[in-house]
Structure formats: C-alpha cells, structure tokens
Amino acid sequence: MNHLGEAHLRTWTLRFMALLAAETRDQLAWLGEHELETKDVVEEVELLCRVSEELAERGAFEPEDMRNLRAIGRRLGEIDATRRVGLWDNALTTDPAWDDIRSLARQFLLARLGDWRQPLPRSVPPHTGDR
C-alpha cells in the first residue's frame, strides 16, 4: 500500500467513525433520502477495521486506536444476519447494538482526535447515469 492509499484509508476510517459516533438524529439527517442497507454499513465498517490493522503496522493508528476499532469490530460481529436486513435508518432507531457502536466510535474519536464531535462525511448522491 502506498502512502497516498494509506492516508485515504485513514481519512475514510475517521470520517466513517464520525458518522457512527454522531447523534441518531444527525445520522438520520445525513442519510436523508438515501437508502443505505444495514448489511452494507456493517460490511464497510468491518472492512475498515480489518484494513486498519495493516495501517497500524505502518504507524497510521496507535495501539489504543486499534483496541477501540477491534471493540467496534467485535460488536458489529455480534449483529446477526436477521438484524442486518433492511435499511440502516430503521436499524439505527430499533437495534440497541447501534447505541453501543455509537459509544465505541465516540471513544475511538475521543482518544484519536480529542473530541468525538466531528464533521460528518459528505453524503454522495446516487449515480443517475447522467453526466
């Protein structure tokens, strides 16, 4: 992995953690009219947690960061297949696992950046095929 790729993955991890750490109402507002599947969110965060292991070996994350990311990965792993079905906005308001994940993401950001309140990533509009 090159330095540019590492920086991009580190930034994406921090941005996604900011989304996970946000208040539920802010997460729902960020989702807006986008239909994001819960399974896709879980898979994305699990991937970021795994990639972060390699980034930590290269010095991009500290051991405490990795403890927090591993805790998030473990909690995500506890979400069974039936609770991964459906839209994420529904899961955010009905599945208490997301409250736990929110707390863990806040711990990660607090340790890493000194504050869990971070700007949410820009929401990318769906591709319409128009140029």
Score class of each variant (00 low, 15 high):
residue 105 A to W: 02
residue 31 L to T: 05
residue 39 K to M: 12
residue 18 A to P: 00
residue 20 L to Q: 02
residue 68 N to M: 02
residue 88 W to V: 00
residue 88 W to E: 04
residue 126 P to H: 07
residue 3 H to G: 01
residue 90 N to G: 10
residue 86 G to D: 11
residue 62 E to K: 03
residue 10 R to I: 01
residue 12 W to Y: 09
residue 27 Q to W: 12
residue 110 L to F: 12
residue 127 H to L: 13
residue 3 H to E: 12
residue 50 R to G: 05
residue 112 R to P: 06
residue 65 D to N: 14
residue 9 L to I: 03
residue 112 R to K: 13
residue 58 R to P: 00
residue 90 N to T: 15
residue 88 W to S: 02
residue 95 D to E: 06
residue 24 T to Q: 01
residue 33 E to L: 11
residue 21 A to R: 05
residue 112 R to G: 03
residue 39 K to I: 14
residue 50 R to K: 08
residue 105 A to S: 14
residue 72 I to M: 08
residue 109 L to M: 06
residue 47 L to A: 08
residue 6 E to V: 01
residue 117 R to F: 01
residue 59 G to L: 03
residue 42 V to L: 07
residue 1 M to T: 04
residue 131 R to N: 08
residue 40 D to E: 15
residue 122 R to N: 08
residue 88 W to Q: 05
residue 105 A to N: 06
residue 70 R to P: 03
residue 71 A to V: 06
residue 78 E to L: 07
residue 18 A to K: 01
residue 60 A to L: 14
residue 13 T to D: 07
residue 120 L to I: 07
residue 53 E to V: 15
residue 75 R to H: 09
residue 24 T to A: 04
residue 99 D to I: 11
residue 28 L to S: 03
residue 20 L to K: 06
residue 55 L to N: 09
residue 2 N to P: 04
residue 84 R to C: 11
residue 24 T to C: 06
residue 25 R to Q: 13
residue 61 F to Q: 07
residue 80 D to S: 09
residue 54 E to R: 11
residue 108 F to N: 06
residue 108 F to R: 06
residue 25 R to N: 11
residue 76 L to F: 06
residue 115 D to G: 05
residue 108 F to A: 09
residue 115 D to W: 11
residue 8 H to E: 08
residue 120 L to F: 10
residue 25 R to F: 08
residue 86 G to L: 09
residue 111 A to D: 07
residue 68 N to W: 13
residue 88 W to D: 04
residue 46 E to G: 09
residue 85 V to Y: 07
residue 47 L to K: 10
residue 103 S to M: 05
residue 47 L to E: 14
residue 122 R to V: 12
residue 97 A to P: 02
residue 75 R to E: 15
residue 30 W to R: 02
residue 110 L to N: 11
residue 129 G to P: 06
residue 75 R to T: 13
residue 20 L to E: 05
